[in-house]
Structure formats: structure tokens, C-alpha cells
Amino acid sequence: MAVLDEMCIQEKMLLQHEVEQFLYHEARLLDERKFDDWLALLTDDIHYWMPIRRTTTAREIDDEFTKPGAMAFFDDDKKYLEIRVKKMAAGNAWSEDPPSRTRHFVTNIRIVDIQGDDITIEANFHLYRTRLDSDEDSWIGHRKDVLRRIDGNFMLACRHIFLEQTLIMSQNMSNLF
């Protein structure tokens, strides 16, 4: 955290602003279903991951989330995210046609670490989705993102998504977080 600690308040405010604007922009692209534009914001080495959460006793809380390499809901590289987007654009992706309506909220954004060009962010999110006339889904959780500065712009280099749900109360998760 050395770099963060050395920054003055003005520098921190500026960086916070840039980070927030990037995350809002990216969320907006997903809500507008501009998935190709969203893909363009991802680094080639992105890890997009949502582990499985379990109800455990407080004593065994370290076991609450599955670890990397075990089962997960999402465990994608760039190639697989491209496949997900390709699927949605295929013209016969029934879970997204008629399209879902989504709204991404990102909040409690904190810059927690800076290593070279990589800025680690923690944020809370709420993804709200409706489908057809009465389907309603709500996913709340927190994210650990890594933003990488490349040629002055941010790219998303890592997204780890931690849901509050154990049993997923949705018919599917055909959307992106």
C-alpha cells in the first residue's frame, strides 16, 4: 500500500473519481447491452470469477466460499466471456430473448491497493433484473476488481464476485455482473 499511503488527499480524490467514472461507465454498458464495448474494456488476462457460497457455522466461516480451482458459478477467462457475449448475440439465446432488463448499481467503492499499474478496488453491488411480465431477480454482493491503467485508460483485469446468496433464487444467471 506504499503508493496509496504516499498520495496526498487531492491525488486520492482524483483517482477515486476516475475509478468511479470507469465503474459507472462499465455498468452502463452492461445495462445498455453494449456487450462488445464492454468486452473491449477487459484485459486479455482477466479472471472473472464467482465462487459458491455456503452457510457454515461461525467457527468454519473460512470455508464459506469455494476457493479458486474448486467449483464456482463463473470461472471465466477473456475467451469464455467472449463466448458468453457471442451467445447473447446469436439470435436464439432464449434466456436473453426477449432481453432481460438489468440495472447495475455500484457503491461503497474503495481503492484498497495499488501495485504498479494495477489498482485493486472493493465495491458493493446490486444487480436488479426483470424478465417478461413478472420475473424479478436481485443479486447483491461485493466485488473485488483490479483496474489496470493502460495508455492512460483503465481496463478491467480481474473481477471476483461474492454474492450474498447461497442457494441462487433465480432460474438462471444469463447476465453479466
Binding site: M50, A93, S95, I168, N172, M173
Partner: peptide
């Protein structure tokens, strides 16, 4: 699984 490329499209049917 719910985010699986195949299973995504089953539930609504």
C-alpha cells in the same frame, strides 16, 4: 449450473 451456457436456457421452458 445457473450460469452454464447450456443450462441458462432450460429453466424458462
Amino acid at each position: 449450473g445457473p450460469a452454464g451456457l447450456l443450462e441458462q436456457d432450460d429453466g424458462e421452458n
